[in-house]
């Protein structure tokens, strides 16, 4: 870490967010988007770092079974569940969203983290799969993660499967692609987007900024970097 004197905000005001590294690509953009939002992003696959995190982003691309396998191999499942159970702010992105549900039908039926009730299913549509490109959000319930973002905002998607939440109450935004699906969900401290905010231009950066603001507020006095 650089000396605190360089950072005009001082280290105590900089929220440290752990970005979970399980060899799923795209981490650089997630880190930069968090930094853009004023947080300090730590990319790590160390279970202890995840356990000690003030706030966590679980990014991801790829297949559900592989994702769960990699999380298990790296002994990250327990730390992730601990972070979530303890009420610390948690953001799942794309595969990191799907991994939160009970199970995924990708390549059979694979149990996932089971943090949120519901399953992950494949698009059944004549339109091209993967669903790739900019699509719109339809905000169905107000949530601070989408503060300042209105229905009709465009965000960038790349996925072939989507979550079907077991509780309608957790759906924050929906998107239309051969039917409507939940593109943003939130329950308590757990938030997740099916699209990639780190690739969604201004709108996506606003979402990371909202997450950081929210995380700062929730972690209160403990918002500074963990003591070392």
């Amino acid at each position: 870490m650089p000396p605190s004197s360089i950072d005009p905000r001082g280290p105590d005001e900089t929220l440290e967010v752990v970005v979970v590294d399980y060899d799923a690509g795209n981490l650089r953009s997630v880190r930069r988007a968090l930094e853009h939002a004023g947080a300090r992003a730590i990319v790590s696959d160390d279970p202890r770092a995840v356990s000690a995190a003030r706030a966590v982003v679980l990014p991801g691309v790829g297949a559900a079974s592989e994702t769960m396998e990699k999380l298990r191999q790296r002994r990250l499942v327990e730390p992730l569940l601990d972070v979530i159970a303890s009420g610390r702010p948690f953001l799942g992105v794309c595969m990191g969203m799907q991994a939160l549900f009970d199970f995924s039908e990708e390549g059979g039926s694979h149990p996932c983290l089971g943090v949120l009730p519901g399953r992950v299913v494949r698009f059944e549509t004549d339109a091209p799969v993967p669903h790739m490109g900019w699509n719109t959000l339809d905000v169905v319930s107000s949530h601070p993660l989408l503060a300042g973002i209105e229905s009709g905002a465009h965000v960038y998607f790349v996925h072939s499967y989507y979550p079907v939440p077991g509780e309608a109450a957790m759906v924050v935004a929906e998107t239309e692609y051969g039917g409507r699906f939940a593109s943003v969900v939130a329950r308590d401290n757990v938030m997740a987007t099916q699209f990639h905010p780190e690739k969604s231009g201004r709108t996506g950066l606003a979402i990371y900024a909202n997450f950081v603001t929210l995380a700062r507020a929730r972690t209160g006095a403990a918002a500074g970097p963990a003591p070392r």
Binding site: E35, H36, G38, G201, R202, T203
Partner: peptide, 16 residues
């Protein structure tokens, strides 16, 4: 996607 949806992203200088 409307062109206006593109930046202006804030010109924040990020450390590192």
């Amino acid at each position: 996607r409307p062109a206006a949806d593109g930046a202006p992203v804030a010109e924040t200088e990020v450390p590192d």
